[in-house]
Design a protein around this nucleic acid. Structure first.
Length: 495
RNA sequence: GAGCCAUUAGCUCAGCAGGUAGAGCACCGGACUUUUAAUCCGGGUGUCGGAGGUUCGAAUCCUCCAUGGCUCACCA
């Protein structure tokens, strides 16, 4: 029995269209035709021919791709062939292919991958086409395509079977092409400035560099648990200790947290470290990087996102957190310090009475009144030391840090600071974090003695920057959900 | 984790005062040698997400479950 024949059990799983395609496959085999013929190499993409038709008109071309539509007219037919570059029409005539060849063509289905050789020409209606003289079936498609006019809308299928989404929704393809260009232009920007691209471990003994719950995995030979990294930060700063003055890493981080339109358990970050620089230098680097990438990818620094336009042209506004709170909520730092409970009550902050402190009131006021208003790019600076365990204290104001977070469209898109390079202060900060951890805060930073040792050898004054690449891609591609910019967003198994 | 909404043919969707499922595309058969969502003639291909329940009768009402979306919470 041929492996292309179906047993009755298998047959029951298939719908009518799939059964018919299996039968066609079996028929081809029995006729001695290879339905997965690889003996054809295309010389052109659809777009090559269309963009330079004056040159290719009347010339022989070879194109390969997927049949996306068919218009049959008896002894002649039209088909649209889609390759990576786009679509080109095929014109197929019985008198050119012969009766046998035309019958073969007539049995093809939407979705089949074929290769054709023929002359490029323009039809009476003006459509640039290929007049088919030779035809290869390179991969028989055994399942029907989604609908040609409405495309594929079911988001669940779009994410789970992204290949279908890419096949039939051209705008989706554009988003991922843009994503690739964004990442490429980030590399260009940094390499031009003499940054060294490095790779640091994803399997970590200590998950450091951020406050987040890690994923845990297990190493058999070492018989130990390991964490998937939540940030590459501490490794990158070890490299600065080692003498690499400008480094960056683009890669995945993994955080064991909720999933939302802005959060995927694995996401891509850029981290950049520059010795002998501070957070102000990193702010300039950030705004220049965003503007460079926007110009490269969108051709402009004026970005439209969900009906609003923002201009990424540097310089961006700088505003301290407390100034921003006073501006948007009308509450001054003096009042928060004097009476946090009163402020919380007056502003209707949803804080448990036991949790009310100057720090929590500041954060809550910021989230409620400030964040939604930060549409145009702005750097919020001067974060409290308690929430910034890896950042250097501000000279003369030791409760604050030289730290910034840029906001665009109300989103926090990056985070940067002057790196804490005092090992004694760092150790104390870790110890504070350990206390919080002991008190039940699973996201508090872990102690990393080995990192302290590195700092004790001496980390030069260093500026650091982290950018959430997925959010950057969302902004630059006008995508409202992070799932629209991740090819295979995390989904629960179907059953 | 909570609330709301969704799940019907391969795809996009109708059908929901409870009466036994329908359209367009796709598909199958036929006509057609320059079409553009080709057209014309003929054909409905289904576990109405799953499991229970109410009822003479459930796609429709109820409960639970699954998956997804949105909002919130969590989370830089």
């Amino acid at each position: 029995m041929s492996r292309f024949e179906l047993d009755p059990e298998e047959l029951q799983e298939l719908n009518d269209q799939m059964v018919i395609r299996r039968q066609k496959l079996a028929e081809l085999i029995s006729q001695g035709i290879n339905p997965f013929d690889a003996d054809f190499v295309p010389t052109h993409h659809a777009l090559d021919i269309k963009e330079d038709f004056a040159h290719w008109e009347g010339q022989e071309v070879k194109v390969a791709g997927r049949i996306m539509s068919l218009r049959r007219h008896g002894k002649a037919s039209f088909a649209d062939l889609q390759d990576q570059s786009g679509r080109i029409q095929l014109y197929v005539r019985q008198d050119l292919l012969g009766e046998e060849g035309y019958d073969f063509f007539s049995k093809l289905d939407l979705g089949d991958i074929i290769g054709v050789r023929g002359k490029a020409f323009r039809t009476k209606r003006g459509e640039i086409s290929v007049e088919v003289e030779e035809l290869h079936l390179m991969s028989k498609s055994l399942r029907p395509l989604p609908e040609k006019w409405h495309g594929l809308k079911d988001v669940e299928i779009r994410y789970r079977q992204r290949y279908l989404d890419l096949m039939v929704n051209p705008e989706v393809r554009q988003v991922f092409i843009a994503r690739s260009k964004i990442i490429q232009s980030i590399r260009e920007f940094l390499l031009e400035r003499d940054f060294l691209e490095v790779e640091t471990p994803i399997l970590n003994v200590i998950a450091g560099g951020a406050n987040a719950r890690p994923f845990i995995t297990y190493h058999n030979a070492l018989d130990m648990n390991l964490y998937l990294r939540i940030a590459p930060e501490l490794y990158l700063k070890r490299l600065v200790v080692g003498g690499f003055e400008k480094v960056f890493e683009l890669g995945k981080n993994f955080r064991n947290e909720g999933i939302s339109t802005k959060h995927n358990p694995e996401y891509t970050s850029l981290e950049v470290y520059q010795a002998y620089a501070d957070y102000k230098d990193m702010m300039e680097l950030t705004e220049e990087l965003f503007a460079y990438v926007a110009r490269r990818v969108c051709g402009t620094t004026k970005i439209e996102f969900q009906g609003r336009t923002v201009d990424l042209t540097p310089p961006w506004q700088r505003m301290s957190m407390l100034a921003a709170i006073e501006k948007y909520s009308g509450v001054s730092w003096e009042r928060i310090q004097a009476d946090p409970e009163g402020v919380a009550r007056e502003k209707g902050l949803e804080l448990e009475p036991a949790r009310i402190s100057t720090g929590s009131v500041v954060m809550e006021l910021f989230d409620t009144f400030v964040e939604p208003n930060l549409i145009d790019p702005v750097f919020i600076t001067d974060y409290p030391v308690e929430v910034s365990p890896l950042a250097k204290r501000t000279e003369g104001r030791p409760h604050l840090t030289d730290r910034f977070e840029p906001y665009i469209m109300g989103w926090e898109v990056a985070n940067g600071f002057s790196e804490l390079n005092d090992p004694i202060d760092q150790k104390e900060r870790f110890e504070k974090q350990m206390e919080q951890r002991a008190a039940g805060d699973e996201e508090a930073h872990m102690m990393d003695e080995d990192y302290i040792v590195a700092l004790e050898y001496g980390l030069p004054p260093t500026g650091g920057l982290g950018i959430g690449i997925d959010r950057m891609v969302m902004l630059l591609t006008n995508s409202p959900s992070i799932r629209d910019v991740i090819l295979f967003p995390h989904m629960r198994p179907k059953e």
